[in-house]
Design a protein around this nucleic acid. Structure first.
Lengths: 195, 195
DNA sequence: ACGTTATATGAACATTTGTTCAGATAAAAG
DNA sequence: CTTTTATCTGAACAAATGTTCATATAACGT
């Protein structure tokens, strides 16, 4: 056999991406073989190389797409007036965006060490941009006297770590709705930077 | 050749543990081979099997030892009076303990999915015990009217996520001393659960 | 209908993987 | 010194790894 009926790169491509995403998130990049990904798609391993130069590029692509999506979504979101409202907006945005992409988030946090140095640097730069968005808000709030944090850089990382932690326990259909979760976290974030 | 001069299980055993710890933390469990571990120790791969039944047991042992050490250290630490002081004590303890064992912490968080179901359950139970320690403090504080948190379980996870995040950026000899870091985080934790 | 291009197969490759084991040597015990 | 026990080597195993490529067929453009 050779080319199969109905085969098309517009279909196979995304399916390969999706399979890699799922399997990397489930078992980890290093533990997943190209043959497993191919099997998930219903194709032979060799066919994957029509869509990626190598395995490592698949990982990088997933992570980069995720980070770019994150930054784009943030920039496109409506930013309210005033540091306090902006912080609230960031809190809601972060929880919601991350909750919608648990697999991408998991990979973006866990597989950094499997990136080549150049790829790693690129992802880290994007992450830095995102952190800057929050730090800018915190700095403005401190200057306006609405926040008190001993160190805006650390507060930024602390808040992000706290919010991202939602993904480790939240399950849809659980005890709490996403709205409730957002309210709870917003209460804690708001107070943690209060004067 | 066969048995080597000066060889002794009391020496080789710990060295294997240390090598596995270092390499698992650096490259991830799945990405590290038994031969790499053996090479780090200066021994052939076959010799490892005098100390572990298989690779997976090495991982489990590392994780279990870490979790038991954590719980033991917590139980042995002097607990002050009153929820607020206990929360402060927990904050300091958590940051310090985790800062002293970055490799163990990293592995304990990242390699859960590589455990067999039974092993996973055992580690998760230990983690649950530790989380309970904090939740107990929070509950007491809420009852005494000293804390306000919408949900003690979530607050527990949020605080732990925030504190463990220290490990992702703190480097000895950096801009801030460990004392300063503790003070900064304590400020945020205290306020986040304030009434 | 036909030529071109896109997309897959399936076999092959050199390496590497976790693990086993018989045999050899060192250390400890008698 | 001799025997027993502990510890390691080195070779071996089948299976799995990432990747390449000649080849075949489907889809598309004309």
């Amino acid at each position: 056999m050779a080319r199969t009926q109905g085969s098309h790169s517009d279909i196979t491509g995304p399916r390969i991406q999706a399979a890699a995403l799922k399997l990397f998130a489930q078992h980890g990049y290093a533990a997943v073989s190209m043959r497993q990904i191919a099997k998930e798609v219903g194709v032979q391993a060799g066919a994957l190389y029509n869509y990626t130069p190598d395995k490592q590029s698949m990982l990088f692509r997933l992570m980069k797409t995720h980070m770019v999506d994150l930054l784009t979504a943030w920039e496109e979101s409506e930013s309210p007036e005033g540091p306090l409202e902006q912080l609230r907006h960031f809190t809601r945005f972060h929880i919601r965006f991350h909750r919608e992409r648990p697999e991408e988030v998991f990979i973006a946090y866990m597989e950094l060490r499997n990136l080549s140095p150049e790829n790693f640097a690129e992802i880290e730069a994007l992450r830095g941009q995102y952190e800057n968005a929050l730090e800018t808000i915190l700095k403005a709030g401190v200057e306006a006297g609405q926040f008190h944090v001993p160190d805006t850089k650390i507060a930024t990382l602390a808040v992000i770590a706290m919010l991202t932690g939602v993904n480790t326990w939240y399950r849809a259909g659980g005890r709490l709705s996403l709205d409730e979760v957002e309210a709870i976290y917003w209460d804690m974030v708001r107070k943690s930077v209060a004067p």
